[in-house]
Computed example of a mutant assay.
Amino acid sequence: MHQEELAQRQANRIVRRHKRIPFQDNGRRMKRCLVALAGGPGSGKSTLAAMIAEKVSQQHVKCQVISIEGFMKPKAELSKQQMKRRGAIETFDGNAVLRMFRVLRERGPGHELRAPSFDEERRDPVQDDQLIEADTEAIIFEGIYLLADREPWNNIESLVDEKWFIHVRPELCRERVADRRTKKGICRTRDEALKQYDESDGLNNEFITKHRYQTDVIIENNEELSLWEPDGDEVW
């Protein structure tokens, strides 16, 4: 399956979900359609989320992508040991993520909300840098731990309409992350990038593969793309 085909199919799924949401007296839907898209480092979450959101918006349902990376704790709040494993679940503010989802559900459409972003150069979060606009009708949240079965992350399950997980073979994730870190200059050599993956990103990848709750769809993003139901039946 081509990436365009998969993005279109998932966009159609969001639009169908959105259309089933009842209207309020003011003409707005009772709630936004919220999607939790999770996957380990190198899974292609950001790229796929952006493509899907664009195709949703083309169907006259305004859709935004919000990254959870900004909820990583600032360096100043982490110990030396935590800094070595920055990116692990305990280095994120899961309670703040949960609060954001609860506020979204409480306020509904017609209200703005801000979320932090992550500054790649400073390697630290930037508060209130992502704006969820009042007229946004669907939101794709992308982040590694959105489907984690650990407190407080597991409380997100009841607050979203769709739960998607991107699975990539571990060895392919390793190559992709090493390539990205080398090209961006985060690591000086490929060997350094591979070592960094093995000591951090790879462990995070293993964690979320083992510790996630039930999903609606599994997206295989290896050399080829495919969609699977949780019971193992191929969707397309």
Rank of each mutant, 00 (worst) to 15 (best):
P22D: 01
K80N: 14
D201E: 11
I139D: 07
E223S: 11
R188N: 10
W153V: 06
V177K: 09
D135Q: 08
G39L: 09
L227H: 05
G108P: 07
N26P: 07
V65K: 01
I166K: 06
R150M: 11
N204V: 05
A115C: 07
R188F: 03
R16C: 08
K195R: 14
V217D: 04
R180E: 02
Q130K: 05
D129Y: 11
G94E: 06
E106A: 15
P152F: 07
V65R: 05
N26W: 01
I52Q: 05
S158F: 07
S200I: 15
A36F: 04
W236H: 11
A178V: 06
V168Q: 11
A7S: 14
R102M: 13
M51Q: 15
R190L: 09
C33L: 05
P116F: 06
F118R: 01
A11Q: 04
F71C: 01
Q214I: 12
G39Q: 06
I139E: 02
S117W: 00
I218Q: 04
L48R: 03
R9V: 08
D149F: 05
D25I: 11
L98V: 10
D149M: 00
P41V: 06
A38S: 14
P116T: 00
F101D: 02
D191N: 12
G143W: 04
S67G: 13
I132L: 15
Q214W: 07
I132N: 01
E54F: 08
T189Y: 00
E151M: 11
F165W: 08
R20W: 02
A88I: 02
D25G: 04
R29F: 02
E106T: 13
E223H: 12
D233M: 12
D231T: 10
R176F: 00
E54L: 11
G108E: 05
R16H: 11
V65Q: 07
I68N: 00
A36Q: 00
E234V: 08
D198N: 09
G27R: 10
A7V: 01
A115D: 02
D216H: 13
K195W: 08
E142K: 07
L6C: 06
N205S: 14
K19Q: 15
V168K: 05
G232L: 09
S79A: 08
R212N: 14
P74T: 01
L203K: 13
F92I: 02
E234A: 08
L98C: 01
H111C: 09
I186Y: 09
Y145K: 05
T209S: 10
E142R: 07
A53V: 05
I139M: 01
E199W: 02
S117L: 04
G42D: 06
I68R: 05
K184H: 14
R174H: 12
R86P: 11
K163M: 09
E137S: 10
G44T: 01
E206S: 10
A96I: 03
L225K: 03
H60T: 12
K75C: 10
L113A: 12
R169M: 08
N95R: 14
Q130H: 04
E77F: 08
I132M: 12
V56I: 00
E106C: 07
A11D: 09
E112W: 08
D161M: 03
A76K: 13
L203E: 05
H18P: 07
D129G: 13
C173R: 15
F165Y: 13
